[in-house]
């Protein structure tokens, strides 16, 4: 019962408030006018907002994919390192959390801007003739998001890989599996819960991210997080902001439910196809 009360006070009641407000209308001076309409949800179908939805979804998926691609080898390396080194590597993965996220994002601005570290190095090496304009693009947002959420991918992957019985890897190798097949047929299926956990932990916050797109994406690009913040704090249209928040949450929940359903179905059909 305490857990139910906790959930109620800190989750369901605020959620209900957001839901109720999302059906209201904006007052003339930014307040909430208690009427009932679906107008806020209809506005979301405007191509202007749909673009932001699609961009957010694409960037969040891209972030998840890159985090998985970078995080898996890293987590595997840490999990296979001698025990006393594992702690050190994990600490190094987590150390960035000790610094303010805003400060770290500003640091990326210094690295990525036209006269920044990255371009200086690239030009001095003669790899590019003129500076690469990457700051204030979707590419910069992607880099910032991957940087920010990589630890959320590495930690669950590490947990899954550390639990993996290495003799299974050796068994596959002994049974004529190439490196790729060892990974694809044994390591990946057995660490799937960690992969799923990592992907969820990266996808959900990056879908709603607003500091990174705000600083690295500049004024031209917006993600859902920025849009919500914009509606609440700049336009002071709380009802519309609430509607966006609600749709965002519904999307995430729907995605997860579809995934879980698909996964359960696959779990039932485990019998080998040859039978």
């Amino acid at each position: 019962m305490p857990s139910l009360a906790w959930l109620g006070i800190f989750f369901f009641i605020p959620l209900l408030l957001v839901l109720v407000i999302s059906f209201a209308a904006r007052g003339t001076y930014g307040g909430v006018e208690w009427t009932f309409s679906l107008a806020n949800y209809a506005t979301l179908l405007d191509p202007l907002y749909l673009t932001i939805f699609v961009r957010s979804l694409a960037l969040a998926l891209g972030t998840t994919a890159f985090c998985l691609l970078l995080g898996f080898p890293l987590a595997y390396y840490i999990a296979r390192a001698p025990l006393r080194w594992q702690g050190i590597w994990l600490l190094l993965v987590m150390i960035p959390f000790w610094t303010n996220f805003l400060v770290r994002t500003y640091a990326w601005m210094f690295i990525l801007r036209t006269e920044g570290l990255m371009n200086t190095v690239l030009m001095n090496l003669g790899l590019v003739a003129s500076p690469v304009e990457i700051l204030y693009t979707d590419g910069a947002i992607l880099i910032g998001l991957v940087y920010g959420y990589l630890p959320f991918m590495v930690l669950p992957l590490y947990a899954a890989l550390a639990r993996l019985d290495y003799s299974l890897v050796e068994a596959a190798w002994d049974l004529y599996a190439s490196a790729w097949n060892v990974f694809w047929r044994v390591i990946l299926p057995l660490t799937k819960p960690g992969v799923i956990a990592g992907c969820i932990l990266v996808f959900i916050p990056s879908l709603g991210a607003f500091i990174t797109p705000d600083l690295l994406g500049g004024a031209r690009t917006m993600m859902l997080g920025n849009l919500i913040q914009h509606e609440y704090l700049v336009v002071r249209d709380w009802p519309f902001g609430s509607a966006i928040s609600f749709v965002l949450m519904a999307l995430v929940l729907l995605g997860m439910m579809v995934y879980l359903e698909v996964d359960r179905g696959r779990g039932d059909g485990r019998r080998p196809s040859v039978w």
């Binding site: 019985d165 003799s167 299974l168 050796e170 068994a171 596959a172 002994d174 049974l175 004529y176 599996a177 190439s178 097949n181 047929r185 044994v186 299926p189 057995l190 485990r270 019998r271 080998p272 040859v274 039978w275």
Partner: peptide
């Protein structure tokens, strides 16, 4: 081919899947 002390059977594959693994590879 090695028979492991811990057997090292693939927990996500059936008996058939385990035995067929080397042939499939």
């Amino acid at each position: 081919n090695l028979v492991f002390q811990s057997y090292a059977l693939f927990p996500h594959l059936t008996v058939f899947g385990n035995i067929a693994f080397g042939l499939e590879m």
